[in-house]
């Protein structure tokens, strides 16, 4: 499980720097050997990634040939009749992830602002540490918590209340089961919150103090200072943090599988059980009996692989840009 944080991002920036040093002529033999080895490792990682992509395409070939582009839009997933369509899982993945973002982003940005700007100095380090710890809890633990605490709470308290208040909306119709899209989205929100909060915090801390002081000296309150001097500079990095969170939500498997209900259906109701690309692979791979079934699951995996890869690259570029533009100079 990949848990990106700002430290990884900074490390991710170094290969290009060492590449330039490596091509420089002034480097001595030891340096060149070291840079050569480092470059080899970097190329090795890229090669492994490419190899993985090729292998997944090969594994899904029979499904790609059989269903073509229709695979993406087909809503039936029926292993018995060997009819495979990815639409319910694409729907489940997108809706659960967007739900997670809608819940997590405001809270995470608030937490980041608190940690970077508002918390008393003695609280900042320990509180940031706790937030980072939350990101390191194995997802199966979140899943267990979801099964034993979250889902029953949703079933007995939240869903009846939502149905009573907003039951006329299709999103809150149907029986209150606890397990379903809402539980999946919520557990994802809780899981991506620490990632978004801690990366956003790092990005805000990197905003030069001189901007904050400029705002304060003009008579800004601390909250206005955040608005005027911090957020405009941290914006790109926060967007990057959100995309990292989204990447994690899209690919998250264990906890979601445990609470989402696992049914290949498209329903307007958030109370209804659903499934995601990741959860269906985890659930069905072991019992996939036919070659076509395996290939279809591989194709789901290929889609997930491509989307998360693109999102992560985009996010890293955004966060890296902020880090470079604002070397964390503090004090005046």
């Amino acid at each position: 499980m990949q848990r990106p944080n700002a430290l990884d991002l900074r490390r991710a920036l170094t290969p290009s720097a060492s590449f330039w040093a490596w091509t420089g002529t002034e480097a001595n033999l030891g340096d060149r050997l070291f840079h050569g080895a480092a470059a080899l490792c970097a190329f090795g990682v890229v090669a492994a990634l490419a190899g993985m992509g090729v292998e997944m395409i090969r594994a899904s070939l029979s499904s790609i040939e059989r269903f073509g582009l229709g695979f993406v839009t087909e809503v039936t997933w029926d292993p018995v009749r060997e009819l495979f369509g990815a639409a319910p899982f694409i729907f489940g993945t997108i809706v659960s992830s967007l739900l997670a973002l809608a819940i997590a982003v405001p809270v995470a940005v608030g937490v980041a602002i608190f940690l970077a700007e508002l918390a008393p100095a003695w609280l900042r380090t320990p509180a940031s540490f706790v937030v980072e710890l939350l990101a390191a809890i194995p997802s199966v633990v979140y899943g267990l918590w979801g099964v034993f605490v979250l889902a029953p709470w949703l079933r007995d308290t939240v869903q009846p209340a939502l149905a009573a208040a907003l039951g006329f909306l299709p999103f809150f119709g149907g029986p209150a089961r606890g397990f379903g899209m809402l539980a999946g989205g919520l557990i994802l929100a809780i899981m991506i919150l620490p990632t978004i909060a801690s990366v956003s915090r790092d990005v805000m801390v990197a905003v030069p103090t001189s901007y904050r002081e400029a705002a304060l000296a003009l008579g800004a309150t601390r909250f206005e200072t955040v608005q005027v001097a911090v957020l405009p500079h941290a914006k790109a990095g926060i967007v990057g943090a959100v995309i990292l969170g989204l990447g994690r939500a899209l690919g998250e498997t264990m906890a979601v599988t445990m609470v989402i209900g696992n049914r290949a259906e498209i329903s307007a109701s958030l109370f209804a059980p659903a499934a995601t690309l990741a959860s269906v692979i985890a659930n069905e791979y072991a019992e996939a009996t036919s070659d076509l079934y395996l290939a279809a699951l591989s194709e789901l995996g290929l889609m997930l692989f491509a989307v998360t890869l693109i999102l992560n690259i985009g996010a890293r570029l955004l966060v890296g840009k902020v880090g470079r533009a604002a070397p964390g100079v503090r004090g005046g």
């Binding site: 030069p208 901007y211 400029a214 705002a215 000296a217 405009p232 005046g332």
Partner: peptide, 13 residues
């Protein structure tokens, strides 16, 4: 009011 040693206009504005 205060003018700082290093010019610090808000670059986003």
């Amino acid at each position: 009011g205060m003018v700082f040693q290093r010019a610090n206009p808000f670059p986003a504005m």
